[in-house]
Design a binder for these strands. Structure first.
Length: 398
RNA sequence: GCCGGGGUACCGAAGCGGCCAAACGGGACGGACUGUAAAUCCGUUGGCCUAUGCGCCUACGGGGGUUCAAAUCCCUCCCCCGGCACCA
């Protein structure tokens, strides 16, 4: 058994803020004494079934709690998702059906359990208590919080000041999320730093409902691959934890250098002080390797590294190239094919295919083609390259 | 309810009868450069047609109309935003 001090140090790794730390100490101590595990809550959004490595950081922390014997409670925000998050603006306000939520969650669970210990994980849906909440109960909940307190949230305050609209539903959101903590009697709630306000509301509400307030445990947000916005699927700057090794590796290599230290610190156990002595490219490769190793395996990471070197550094042919089936009917009697016909098999449109050819993006067996008005003789197994990242191997079909 | 502003391509935003597939910026994509990237530079960015042509089709919230000609004018509907009014 680890000492309290060791546990605390273990849990504090990578945490940005723990509000308040003394409560965490108190809870850990009591748990150890009574043998009752802490209930550690994490709210998950069921609108997208993909877990990216940014969320992976938070899940790892949950895992840390589990290793100390505590219980992870994943709350699926199915009810709140069906209303649609008002902060995401009208275009995003898609209502999810029950079926969609179920399907998303199935995928989500599978991925989350790559990190979490299934023995110590509870999945709960917040529709369980929110859907059946009647108006009287809602009024009770609403009475526990004030407008002034709501306006402490920065973006509310700013919008209010500037006369921009804030819908009532937006006020209800933190309340609903906070109520989740009451429903499952959370001891600790994890979240990204963007969740600070919401987690604090949960803490306050629990107290007003006569519960012991939760500890708010804030984890850093991972910036996306572009280094500008936070990692998220909607920004297209993310790495999913189930992505194939090569893809994961490649994406991680594409981050700007300025982001490297953060990635190393948040995603790997590498020693940054030591690492930064190396050539920048090597630093990045080590980081990418470590991440791939974590979500796949050491062997997969080795292969991904080797593959990356081969394709991008030495500009050689990748090990695995998808087959591109080419119908023999497209061939002219003399066995050639019009280059535009060929490229449009991998391009969005024929116009795009033509553009790519003229821009010198197309290579056949290493030979660059820049005239769209050409016919080429193809053979089975010929390597087609379009741009930096698209490779295909022709296979002729009847 | 009233008054005013607005809805343009992936996003932001100009255009306000023909020269508009629509300036400009961002993004994305391609090329050069590199350390793989970033930065920088150059180019592309609705679709179709063997194809750089004063080519064809579709497109400026939906529908209808005026006109030789509409993103641009008129009617109508929908949606968004702001102000006023209302406020037990």
């Amino acid at each position: 058994m680890r000492t309290l001090e060791e546990q605390l140090r273990f849990l504090k790794r990578r945490a940005v803020d723990i509000i308040p730390e003394r409560d965490l100490v108190k809870k850990l101590e009591r748990s150890q004494r009574t043998g009752r595990p802490l209930r550690v809550k994490l709210g998950v959004d069921p609108t997208s079934p993909d877990i990216h490595i940014g969320i992976g950081i938070v899940l790892q922390k949950l895992r840390d709690f589990q290793e100390l014997g505590h219980t992870a409670v994943l709350i699926v925000g199915d009810f709140t998702a069906r209303i649609g998050d008002p902060s995401e603006r009208a275009s995003q306000r898609k209502m999810l059906s029950k079926d969609e939520v179920t399907a998303n969650m199935k995928a989500y669970k599978e991925q989350a359990l790559k990190i979490l210990d299934p023995e110590r994980t509870e999945f709960r849906y917040n529709s369980e208590w929110l859907e059946t909440m009647d108006f009287a109960k809602l009024l009770e909940l609403a009475s526990k919080y004030t407008v002034a307190a709501m306006l402490e949230r920065d973006d509310f305050a700013a919008r209010f000041r500037e006369g921009n609209p804030i819908s009532i539903v937006e006020f209800l959101y933190p309340l609903a999320q906070g109520y989740d903590s009451i429903a499952i009697e959370a001891d600790v709630e994890l979240g990204g730093t963007d969740q600070r306000f919401n987690l604090l509301v949960g803490r306050a509400l629990q107290e007003r409902y006569g519960q012991e307030p939760q500890v708010c445990f804030l984890m850093p947000l991972l910036e996306g691959l572009d280094g500008a916005k936070k990692m998220s699927k909607s920004h297209g700057n993310y790495v999913g934890i189930t992505e194939p090794p090569n893809e994961m590796f490649g994406k991680l290599m594409s981050i700007p250098d300025a982001l490297l230290e953060k990635y190393v610190q948040l995603l790997t156990d590498l020693d940054w002080e030591e690492l930064k002595q190396l050539h920048p490219k090597e630093q990045k490769e080590k980081m990418a390797h470590a991440v791939v190793a974590r979500y796949h395996s050491k062997e997969a990471a080795d292969r991904a590294l080797e593959e990356f070197e081969r394709v991008f550094a030495r500009k050689e042919r990748p090990a695995d190239v998808p087959k591109l089936s080419l119908d023999k009917k497209l061939l002219k009697p003399d066995g050639t094919v019009w280059i535009v016909d060929l490229v449009s098999l991998v391009a969005k449109s024929r116009s795009e295919a033509k553009r790519l050819i003229e821009q010198g993006a197309v290579e056949l067996d290493g030979v660059k083609i820049t005239q769209f008005d050409t016919h080429v003789r193809v053979r089975d197994g010929m390597l087609v390259r379009v741009g930096k990242h698209t490779f295909a191997e022709i296979s002729l079909t009847e």
